[in-house]
Design a protein around this nucleic acid. Structure first.
Lengths: 348, 348
DNA sequence: AAGCGATGGACGTTAATTGTCCCAGTACTA
DNA sequence: TAGTACTGGGACAATTAACGTCCATCGCTT
């Protein structure tokens, strides 16, 4: 039932919006009993004329009865409302989550897809699909797009498709090697994205574990300098997020650092930085690339991550406060919103 | 799955139409492989500009890849197409039936609702719903609407709702008493419709079995003459259809007539007339009201009937050739289309 | 190399949507 | 019973979106 809507949304993006609008009107009229057009328009804060169009439509469909004394719901309309109620409740649950997260973390946009990436691979795919579509929408011209690694980003890459608008873009890894397995490395993701879209890409060839001297000498290298310049020019970055300790283990962070992270309460990891619950950076992976100050100046920071287990981590990264757009799934969103409420309680 | 589509059909029929359009385009492109915009427009008979809008949209959604050499479907698009196929088939298998019937019988409009009225009462309700909505759409001003009896028409009456546009109308029974039970008599239906819509009505008080002299004297009666005049003025008639022998039995037609009907191959009954397979009238019930020549002059003859068992009967009435609009269900439509094909075979 | 068919841009025209009043009713109240 | 505060529907200008049409440029094939 839900997936039908997901499918339709691709062909009719404003389907849900229209459905919601008409449902709301119908619902309001049922509750009100007999109500006037202008009153309706006022209550649902839209204009009289638009409300008139909708009412005309709903009347035409036989869902409303409109008399000189006002508008009331018809028997058919009442029946429809009963049938559609569970569906709408389900749907608006998601939009409600979106709004709550958007407002609380002051984001430009939040998209919550139904399901739990921890449980269903399909949900993760949808995360990728939505992530790809959002990325596509925010690319305005030839520009540099910084990406990170991870399985979610790999999924985003999978769902990109060629487009002339993207032809002039350049995908670059946000930071150097972070010890991921090859297929989940930022390098791989960037090249996949470029291949899928027909764009170009640059790779970061940086050894995983880097000593200080090596680091400094690397910064003298021409090709490294060039790609760093690219990254600094990026207007868009799209990245995954993960649980701190899980990522540390996966990236074979040394025992000492891991212990410190654990001790300091590291919760989340994103583009090579580790965050605690308050969104404060505890540690950065020893590699080159995107810096914190670069992120702050980005026009468009897109975070994509889902799964109930990642809820807290995502919240921590959002707390950091430099995200613009979040793409997540229902399970993670619910987790985040619950913690958000708990937080309020503990403060009061 | 089906009910969600049913809901959407009521709440956003316009969006479903665009969904179909976009699906058709996507489908066509998948089949064609690489195809040009103008070729597309020609094949799907729309204009180049409109096709361009749609292609732009689908490209934006990442469902198409458009290059200088033409348009092809993307991986995402192919996936979507697979997912949406059953849904569309469900939705438009019916439209295909509609089109076949409409073209073969040269009708203005055919609506096929999903299901089988023989099996499900819900399907019959939907038949009524659609019938009512079509009736509503075809009423332009204050006018006379002739109706017949039967359970389907009762359902239509149930789903009518008040409307100022209908206030000035007058519902009249198409023909006098036809021996139906009270709640299914045309008289009852006409009065129900009038009450539901806030319109007026006239009744036909005619004894069931009528001798010739009685018939003649009845034609002198003032009130009878008045209502007959009304009927002759009707621009719209909405009627049910039934199986001939079933109707004869239900209406207690005398044994001799029944035998003749059976012998002559009576298949269908509508507004008191009995038809054979070729749509030729075999017999008319001895009562007053709507005549064949009246039907021929009507602007809008709406037939409503469904159920697999009625398929043949409906086909016979359509063969008669004076219907404008048909509302039926999936089971009956399939039955009719199959017979239609059989007919072709036997001719070749 | 030339020709055909492709997309994408440009722009005037047309159609639809929308904002805004007003009018003729209806229901409720004083 | 008279008045008031609503109601839907009609009308119309203004704005906006959609559409038709033409042309430039690009890519592939012959």
């Amino acid at each position: 039932m839900r997936d039908i809507l997901g499918i339709q949304k691709q062909l009719l993006p404003d389907l849900l919006e229209t459905m919601k609008k008409r449902y709301t009107i119908l619902h309001y009229i049922r509750v009100s009993g007999l109500v006037g057009r202008r009153t309706l328009a006022g209550s649902l804060n839209t204009t009289e004329r638009i409300m008139r169009g909708e009412v005309d439509f709903l009347k035409e469909q036989g869902l409303l009865e409109v008399e000189a004394s006002g508008i009331r719901i018809s028997e058919t309309g009442r029946l429809l409302l009963e049938q559609i109620e569970p569906l709408v409740k389900d749907l608006f649950g998601l939009t409600e989550l979106q709004e709550q997260l958007r407002l609380h973390y002051n984001l430009k946009q939040v998209v919550v897809v139904p399901g739990d990436s921890d449980v269903s691979a399909h949900t993760k795919k949808e995360l990728g699909l939505v992530g790809a579509s959002i990325l596509r929408k925010h690319i305005t011209q030839d520009e540099v797009i910084a990406v990170t690694g991870g399985s979610t980003m790999a999924e985003v890459a999978n769902h990109l498709s060629p487009s002339t608008a993207l032809k002039g873009c350049i995908f670059v890894p946000a930071r150097g090697g972070l010890g991921e397995s090859v297929e989940l490395q930022a390098n791989t993701i960037a090249s996949t994205m470029a291949k899928k879209t027909g764009a170009r890409y640059r790779l970061f060839h940086v050894p995983d574990q880097l000593g200080e001297e090596a680091y400094q000498s690397l910064l003298q290298d021409g090709s490294i300098l060039e790609i760093i310049a690219f990254i600094r020019n990026a207007r868009i970055v799209i990245h995954g997020m993960g649980e701190a300790m899980l990522m540390a283990r996966r990236r074979r962070v040394d025992a000492a650092t891991t212990a410190i992270l654990q001790q300091d309460g590291a919760l989340a990891e994103a583009f090579g930085y580790y965050f605690d619950r308050r969104g404060i950076i505890l540690h950065k992976m020893p590699t080159v690339g995107l810096r914190i100050e670069d992120i702050q100046e980005m026009d468009c920071v897109i975070g994509v991550a889902g799964g109930k287990s990642k809820g807290e981590a995502i919240a921590a990264v959002l707390q950091f406060g430099h995200e613009d757009i979040l793409v997540t799934d229902e399970a993670a969103a619910i987790e985040m919103v619950q913690n958000l409420h708990l937080g309020r309680h503990s403060l009061s």
